Computed example of a mutant assay.
Amino acid sequence: MQGVTAGRRTTWLLALTTGALVWTAGAVGTAYAAKPVPGGHDTTEGGADGKTLLASAGQSRIKVTQVSGPTGGKRGAVSSVDVNWKPPACWYEPVFTPASLKNFSETNGVGDVGIHEYWAGKDLWTDYFRDEKSTINYFENGKTVEGYKNYNLGQDGYFWRSVAPDISDPDSWDCTRLMFWQPAGQIPKIAHAPTPETLADYAYNKIEVPDTEIELKPTTKSTVNLPTWVWLDKGTFQEVKVRAELPDTGLWAETTAKPVALHLDPGTEEAETYPASGDCEINADGSIGTPYEKGNADRTPPCGIRYLKATDGEPYRLKASITWQISWQGSGGTGGDLPDGTFETTQDMTVQEIQAINR
């Protein structure tokens, strides 16, 4: 957080006067209201362009679509293998045209002018965006910010605002500017302006990969000292590609998750994996491991498990984690790699004592 300490924030008092929230702790009459954290104001208002304009800075206008990959069945989000990586906590994006801001301000006037700043009352909006009255950004060391004349009607451009998917994230305080004007066709040259990589990172968290059980032989009942074969047929896992676009900016990115490996964790130390690392690579044809065939009972599978001790009432929890290689490409010829992702499924395994089995 910039310019305001957490202790100071807890002492602010807010009062309702003439339909507006007013700062009453040493700055009465500044027509300023602070937004509590966490929480959000999800008020929406229809704009002149027929689109829904969000009054909440906790909602992004980024549009996400899945370009390729399975869409049905049980699916889930991947987790980054890099525990220190996370997508941007905040950025700026266009949200209002002059006409839609006029409509919002004069008919609603309740919403966010920044991630952590919430204005309730038409006077707050019209004073600043219509009547050229300056205001103070307390989150930028009390900086005075000049107001606008008649919402910049007649000009081609957008009012941009900060956005944070999680407003309780401390790093969201990196984007403290009040909503500001930017001519059409231009990306603001400021810290935390959106980039294709911003959209690629955003899309990362929107990827959903299939939750498919691995094939086993024997299925869910294994035998001590005899190998359990593990495989996935080709086509079981496909690339998943997600596209993220930020309207009115020309920015886009496509983030692709490609399955590259399967890791087996037998759920007990009394077991061996094949290969020893437990990492089964995906074959050139998209399959993993080799399907069991009759007569392979005593052979070592390229991908599998050998349990050394029988279960006693409770089954072992066999974990199968798929590693997904994440890359992206975007507008302006941009692109690169993102941290690999993983998705884990768990299956119960019962192991019996019989030393031989007729397969």
Score class of each variant (00 low, 15 high):
M1D: 14
Q2D: 13
T10F: 05
T11Y: 00
A15K: 11
G19N: 13
G19R: 10
G19K: 11
L21T: 13
W23A: 10
W23K: 13
T24S: 13
A25F: 08
A27K: 11
G29H: 11
Y32D: 14
K35H: 15
P36A: 15
P36K: 12
V37M: 11
H41L: 15
D42H: 05
D42W: 04
T44P: 07
E45L: 03
D49H: 05
S56Q: 00
G58F: 02
G58S: 15
S60T: 15
S60Q: 06
K63D: 05
V64E: 03
V67K: 11
G69Q: 06
A77M: 01
S80W: 06
N84P: 02
W85S: 08
K86M: 04
K86I: 07
P87H: 02
P87A: 15
P88E: 12
Y92C: 10
E93T: 08
P94W: 12
F96K: 02
T97C: 10
P98H: 07
S100F: 08
N103H: 08
N103P: 01
F104N: 09
E106A: 04
N108T: 14
V110F: 14
G114H: 00
I115Y: 05
H116W: 00
A120D: 14
L124H: 13
Y128T: 00
F129H: 08
R130S: 14
E132N: 15
S134W: 00
S134H: 00
T135H: 07
I136L: 07
F139A: 15
F139T: 12
K143M: 12
V145N: 07
Y148W: 10
K149Q: 12
K149L: 11
N150C: 09
N152D: 10
N152P: 05
N152Q: 14
L153I: 14
G157P: 09
F159D: 11
A164F: 03
A164V: 04
D166Q: 06
D166H: 01
S168K: 10
C175V: 00
T176C: 02
M179P: 00
F180L: 11
F180A: 09
G185A: 12
Q186W: 06
Q186T: 15
I187S: 05
A200W: 04
D201P: 02
Y202I: 02
N205K: 10
I207S: 02
E208I: 09
D211F: 08
D211I: 09
E215D: 14
V224E: 11
V224W: 02
T228G: 08
T228L: 12
W231N: 04
Q238A: 14
E239W: 04
V240Q: 03
V242K: 05
L246M: 14
T256E: 05
A257E: 02
T273W: 01
P275Q: 06
S277P: 09
C280W: 06
I282S: 04
S287N: 03
I288S: 01
P291H: 01
E293K: 12
E293C: 02
G295C: 08
G295L: 09
A297C: 02
D298W: 02
K309C: 05
A310F: 07
T311A: 04
G313F: 04
K319N: 14
S321W: 05
Q325C: 00
S327K: 10
S327C: 06
Q329T: 14
G332Y: 01
T334N: 08
L338K: 01
P339N: 06
D340Y: 05
Q352C: 00
I354R: 11
R359I: 01
R359C: 06
